[in-house]
Design a protein around this nucleic acid. Structure first.
Length: 280
DNA sequence: ATGCCCTGCTGTGCAGGA
């Protein structure tokens, strides 16, 4: 699988959109990709943007203070980012101008992690998140994750009340249901699979934010992350943790949501692969 | 029960990821 060509992945991904959709005619394509270091993955991201031509790309895990704004500018993308040394970091790329609304999530002034970027692009509020991992369970890291999710819920409730059409995309570090992992037994002691974060994720969907991928696809076996080790990729032993949550007011405008497995099969890949949302 | 693999950082392995 490691040698699988990029183009085959692209073809597979496009087919999952179904017949008769002419992508560039009437769709806005919004993608999200945890790249596990933008420095290490820059050429793959540039190549992917040229191949897929999304309108917006949300990046997570930049892993450094430097961000290659000029490289993206040269292929027609505006870029805004929130970064810190060595860890975390999120960036939003867009062919259309980006208006930055917020660069951090309210509710904890001591939280200086680069994990949140709220923007307006066209008529949409687009929130890029890198939700805390939370491992190991039983530590302050797990408590930080839960608190972060509570803060996110507050923010999304406020936007819902204001009737702002909102799309939250990124690495949620939550496996929503058992069908979103290859083996519940393998993940049972992991922060991504605990009842508390899963309940909070369901709380967001109950509050009027649609899990876009599940809206279109009820099958098990569709993942966005595969461990680097133990041949997990070759055996499709993955988890679905990168998500788009979409305001229910935008439901009629959603035309598809797909996972593009192509980039995970490249040489020196990120451990995550992109997810793409199509909005009319 | 833990590591496996990968990245950044200034390291002489560690922290963090998931």
């Amino acid at each position: 699988m490691r040698n699988r060509s990029y183009n085959q992945g692209a073809v597979d991904a496009l087919q999952s959109f179904g017949v008769g959709i002419k992508l560039k005619d009437f769709l806005m394509l919004i993608a999200s990709w945890n790249v596990n270091s933008i420095k290490s993955r820059l050429s793959q991201v540039l190549h992917w943007l040229e191949a897929r031509k999304p309108d917006v790309l949300l990046l997570q895990e930049l892993k450094g203070t430097e961000f290659p704004v000029d490289a993206f500018k040269s292929i027609g993308f505006h870029a805004e980012f929130v970064a810190q040394k060595a860890y975390h970091g999120v960036a939003t790329l867009s062919r259309r101008p980006i208006a930055v609304v917020l660069t951090s999530l309210a509710g904890d002034k001591s939280d200086i992690h680069a994990r949140y970027l709220e923007t307006t692009i066209e008529d949409l509020r687009i929130i890029n998140i890198y939700l805390p991992n939370g491992n190991p369970i039983g530590t302050e890291k797990f408590e930080y994750k839960l608190a972060w999710m509570d803060r996110l819920k507050k923010r999304l409730a406020a936007l819902k009340k204001q009737k702002v059409p909102t799309i939250v995309g990124g690495d949620f570090n939550v496996i929503p249901e058992d069908i979103d992992c290859f083996s519940p037994r393998y993940w049972k002691n992991n922060a991504l699979f605990q009842p508390e974060p899963r309940d909070r994720f369901r709380g967001l969907t109950k509050a009027g934010y649609i899990d876009a991928f599940r809206h279109f696809n009820k099958e098990p076996g569709h993942y966005t992350f595969w461990e680097y080790f133990l041949d997990h990729w070759a055996h499709n032993r993955g988890i679905r943790i990168d998500h788009f949550l979409v305001s229910s007011s935008l439901q009629e405008r959603m035309t598809g949501c797909m996972i593009d497995k192509g980039p995970r099969g490249l040489i020196k890949p990120s451990d995550h692969t992109p997810i793409i949302l199509a909005i009319r």
